[in-house]
Amino acid sequence: MAKIKITTPLADKVIKNLKTGDKVLISGVVYTARDMAHKRLVEVIESGERLPFDLKGQIIYFTGPTPAPPGRVIGAAGPTTSARMDSFSPVLIKKGLKGMIGKGPRGKEVVDAMKKYKAVYFAAVGGAAALLSKRIKKSEVIAYEDLGTEAIRRLEVEDFPVIVVNDVYGDDLYLKGMKRYAR
């Protein structure tokens, strides 16, 4: 199966072409955020303040990297469990977020929001953090530096390998895969 190359920010036209199970290579800007950063982003939205970055068309990568060794852009940076972000993601999707990269199944409220507002959920391979770090070309903390590894980073990635788990049509790779191989 061929790999689909996409570049951020994502337009609806691109997103509609992505189907569950597709192998995708992402290039461009991706923002990192995990538990505490999500909590803060949603608090900012709820209080009507300005977000540290414009969510429109963007992808958030759920990761907390290891410190960058000397001479490197970033340390190991694989996906963390997405379900912990389930209560926050719908709020961000409504604000224009178009993609998320993580690992593991999403809750119904996230899947519904993805269908309604046209967003897609990708999985990167959990525990392939050294390999994934090599596809990150630039990294800069842009908000919540006090959170350390959980700060929001603006990454520039090149051919970052992911698989489409949930597309805008409501399909789910985890359910499909399990059904196909269960016996």
């Binding site: 990761t63 907390g64 990297p65 290891t66 060794p69 490197r72 340390g75 190991a76 940076a77 694989g78 963390t80 391979v125 959990g126 525990g127 392939a128 953090a129 050294a130 390999l131 770090s133 090599k134 590894t149």
Partner: peptide
């Protein structure tokens, strides 16, 4: 491939150490 990169370049296998 990840294991090879991690070993040769001294990057952790997983960011969750």
């Amino acid at each position: 491939e990840n294991a090879v990169i991690a070993r040769e370049e001294g990057i952790p296998i997983c960011q969750d150490t």
